[in-house]
Design a protein around this nucleic acid. Structure first.
Length: 282
DNA sequence: ACCGCTACACACTGCGGAGG
DNA sequence: CCTCCGCAGTGTGTAGCGGT
């Protein structure tokens, strides 16, 4: 088989999003538009926006749920995440038919009724549309970073308060000279005696699998004398129970020495103290 | 047999740190 | 200062499974 030149390969790359757009999903667009029209009409026809009235609405038309959710800033994934977290299911069709009250009161936690009244009566301009688009797309990335770091910061604080030195985010060398990434290493990057991985996810996706793989890698590379702790939190894990269980199995089978969420930080403090004493760090 | 749900794979985004 | 790239997100499609 002949090789094509690298430059030919490079030159042959095409913009997949352009190709896709040509297919034109005009029908779906029209259908969606009609659906939204119907829902907005139904909403406008209610004599008042109340929980009871909204219950009747979604009971009849469960497809209205994701549209209502978008009024309080929840996209499909976020909506599923919240449903799993608060109601124990990721789907909204069935539960809307059977127990609409629970769905509506979940959404009401995000001030659904207030938002709806506000947005239904508003005279929308192009400026408003642009602003909404901009906020919607940047909402994710900007606020996300903070959440992830929060878990790490709290862990770092505990370590520092105990009077231990540590370094955050890096790679350490373990068995057979293999390396693995860590989020926490005590006393430092070189020859750490205690290593930790922090994984806080509110959303889902293959990222969670990546996170598990990272922890597995850590467990695999550890030296027998090294302690390995995992810190996890966020409702994303509720929609990735298979991944969570894999981490838990690592603990169960003693590949790692502990798993902690934010509410377990006191337990972590104790375990850390014991581990540090055993290594004569304290 | 069909429908709805779950689990998962994959693509894309904005920020921020590292290195030229 | 610019560019590259990793990270934690969002969003979407689909295979497989279980209930009706």
């Amino acid at each position: 088989m002949d090789l094509i030149s690298y430059n030919d390969l490079l030159g042959s790359l095409s913009d997949l999003s352009m190709v896709k757009q040509n297919n034109g999903n005009l029908d779906e667009f029209i259908e969606l538009k009609e659906q939204i029209n119907t829902i907005v009409e139904d909403l406008s026809n209610l004599d008042d926006i109340t929980e009871d009235n909204l219950c009747t609405l979604i009971q009849k038309e469960p497809d209205a749920v994701p549209i209502l959710a978008s009024c309080v800033g929840l996209g499909r994934e976020k909506l599923r995440g919240q449903l799993t977290h608060r109601l124990g299911t990721g789907g909204w069709v069935k539960i809307s038919r059977k127990e609409p009250q629970r769905v509506i009161s979940m959404l009401e936690q995000f001030n659904l009724i207030e938002r709806l009244k506000e947005q239904l009566s508003k005279e929308w301009t192009f400026n408003d549309v642009l602003l909404e688009r901009y906020l919607w797309s940047s909402r994710s990335a900007t606020s996300a970073q903070g959440q992830g770091r929060d878990l790490e910061d709290q862990i770092e604080e505990i370590v520092k308060n105990l009077g231990l030195s540590c370094s955050m985010r890096g790679r350490f060398t373990g068995r057979g000279g293999n390396t693995a990434p860590f989020d926490l290493a005590i006393p430092g990057e070189n020859n750490p005696l205690i290593v930790g991985a922090a994984k806080g996810f509110n959303s889902t996706g293959s990222k969670l699998s990546d996170a598990v793989r990272e922890i597995e890698e850590l467990a695999d590379v550890r030296l027998p004398r090294q302690f390995v702790f995992a810190f996890i939190d966020g409702i994303g894990w509720k929609r990735r129970e298979a991944d969570l269980r894999r981490i838990y199995n690592l603990w169960e089978n003693q590949y790692i020495d502990g798993i902690y969420t934010l509410v377990h930080l006191e337990r972590f403090k104790e375990d850390l103290k014991n581990a540090a004493v055993r290594h004569e760090l304290l």
